[in-house]
Amino acid sequence: MDSPAQPRNPLHGITLARMIEDLADYYGWEELGQRIPVRCFTHDPSVASSLKFLRKTPWAREKVEGLYLYTLRQTRQSD
């Protein structure tokens, strides 16, 4: 069974790793840790450690997704 298309979902097709990489590139790890104060962003941050934590912690993943969507909106408005 095919999954239904999600043309209006901006997160469709975006992996969690891609979100973390994009946010870290845009804000840097230090500012990312200030915006979302979780240990995987503030102490020896890496994509691998962040993925491990965020896959187990739904509330933190929601914050990352929310910041990613906010950042997408802001960058699209400034273009």
Rank of each mutant, 00 (worst) to 15 (best):
D2Y: 15
S3M: 14
P4A: 10
P4T: 09
P4V: 11
A5L: 12
A5D: 12
A5S: 13
Q6P: 03
P7L: 08
P7A: 07
R8A: 11
R8H: 14
N9R: 02
P10V: 04
P10F: 01
L11V: 10
L11A: 07
G13Q: 06
I14C: 11
I14L: 13
I14S: 08
T15Q: 05
T15Y: 02
L16Y: 09
L16I: 08
L16P: 05
A17S: 15
R18Y: 08
M19H: 06
I20W: 03
D22M: 12
D22P: 03
A24Q: 13
A24G: 15
A24I: 15
A24C: 13
D25Y: 12
Y27K: 05
G28D: 13
G28F: 09
E31F: 00
L32V: 06
L32P: 09
Q34W: 00
Q34D: 01
R35W: 00
R35V: 00
R35S: 00
I36W: 12
V38A: 05
V38E: 12
V38H: 09
R39Y: 01
F41Q: 07
D44V: 11
D44I: 07
P45E: 14
S46P: 14
S46L: 14
A48D: 13
S49F: 00
S49E: 02
S49G: 02
S49K: 09
L51Q: 15
L51H: 15
L51Y: 14
K52D: 02
K52A: 02
K52M: 01
F53Y: 13
L54N: 02
R55N: 15
K56W: 00
T57H: 09
T57S: 09
T57P: 01
P58H: 04
P58W: 06
P58M: 07
A60E: 03
A60Y: 03
A60L: 05
R61Y: 04
E62Q: 12
V64L: 02
E65Y: 06
G66R: 14
G66K: 09
Y68I: 01
T71Q: 06
T71L: 01
L72S: 05
R76S: 11
S78M: 02
S78I: 04
